[in-house]
């Protein structure tokens, strides 16, 4: 069974402490855990620490029957390589193997591209892609690794609404069908409520809360962590969602009146 557990995990850059004392019970395969928190809360640093890209105190315990390392999808997907989408996904698949590419490997790449509905981009150069397309290609690379633990750092930040829905439903299905353990950092709390089983809240480099989404995301927590007034509502089907109180137009109005 796949599992991921943190024991006193921290991250330091020089003398600056970015993250400290993160301790959790094991996160299990088949589970989607949303990591939320304001900017600079330490979400990306936590992902980089799990992926072994930074060092720090504490221990990240990875339980994997196949011994595969967690697969990290970085937030920054900009590249200037002269490679096609197909070549870049092939790279994810082929690490360490021979130069020959088998039909099975090509079939696996095609399947991943199709699952993300980007097969028409296969032979486009990476440099020609939009931000959203690059993000989808990056997700394709991650999936081509056939990971057991996936760390997705804001994977939908550059995607349109339709693509966001597609990617999040794919993530949800992969977790359920293949028993993947998914950590996904999101700024959109309603997406977190929709896709995640549990939510991990970070603020100021510390773990504020970890638990089932509907229990953790409350008006009190949002006021504490984000400093906003919000209320929870439910859709007709009973799914919870966050409504931020106040209006941006109201906030802008006094300034306009002063200018007038």
């Amino acid at each position: 069974m796949v599992s991921l557990e943190f024991v006193g995990v921290g991250v330091r850059y020089g003398r600056r402490e970015i993250l400290s004392g993160i301790t959790t019970p094991p996160l299990r395969g088949g589970e989607v855990v949303a990591v939320i928190g304001p900017n600079a809360a330490g979400k990306s640093s936590l992902f980089r620490r799990i992926a072994g890209l930074t060092r720090g105190p504490g221990e990240v315990r990875v339980g994997s029957p196949t011994g595969r390392a967690p697969c990290y999808l970085p937030q920054d997907t900009a590249v200037n390589a002269v490679l096609t989408v197909h070549e870049s996904v092939l790279l994810a698949k082929k690490q360490g193997g021979s130069w020959r590419v088998s039909d099975d490997e090509l079939a696996a790449i095609d399947a991943v591209l199709r699952a993300l509905a980007i097969e028409d981009l296969a032979f486009r150069s990476l440099g020609e892609l939009s931000g959203g397309q690059r993000q989808l290609v990056s997700i394709a690379q991650t999936l081509a690794r056939e990971p057991e633990i996936v760390l997705l750092d804001e994977p939908t930040s550059a995607l349109d609404l339709h693509r966001q829905f597609e990617v999040l439903s794919l993530v949800r299905r992969l977790a359920s069908e293949r028993g993947l353990c998914v950590l996904i950092s999101l700024h959109d709390l309603n997406q977190a409520l929709q896709v995640a089983d549990r939510v991990m809240v970070l603020a100021g480099g510390r773990l504020v809360a970890l638990g089932p989404v509907a229990e953790v995301i409350t008006p009190a927590l949002l006021a504490e962590v984000y400093g906003i007034a919000a209320r929870m509502e439910r859709t007709a089907s009973g799914a919870p969602y966050v409504v931020v109180e106040g209006s941006l137009k109201d906030a802008a109005a006094p300034r306009q009146s002063r200018a007038a």
Binding site: R48, A51, G52, L53, A69, C71, Y72, L73, P74, D76, V79, N80, A81, L83, E87, S88, L91, A92, K94, Q95, G96, G97, W99, S138, Q141, T142, R145
Partner: peptide, 20 residues
């Protein structure tokens, strides 16, 4: 190292996450 060297062009973080 051909595959690994090509992967470097996707960025250090991506290459490291591919196990390089």
């Amino acid at each position: 190292r051909a595959w690994a060297l090509t992967t470097l062009r996707l960025g250090d973080d991506k290459a490291a996450s591919f196990g390089i």
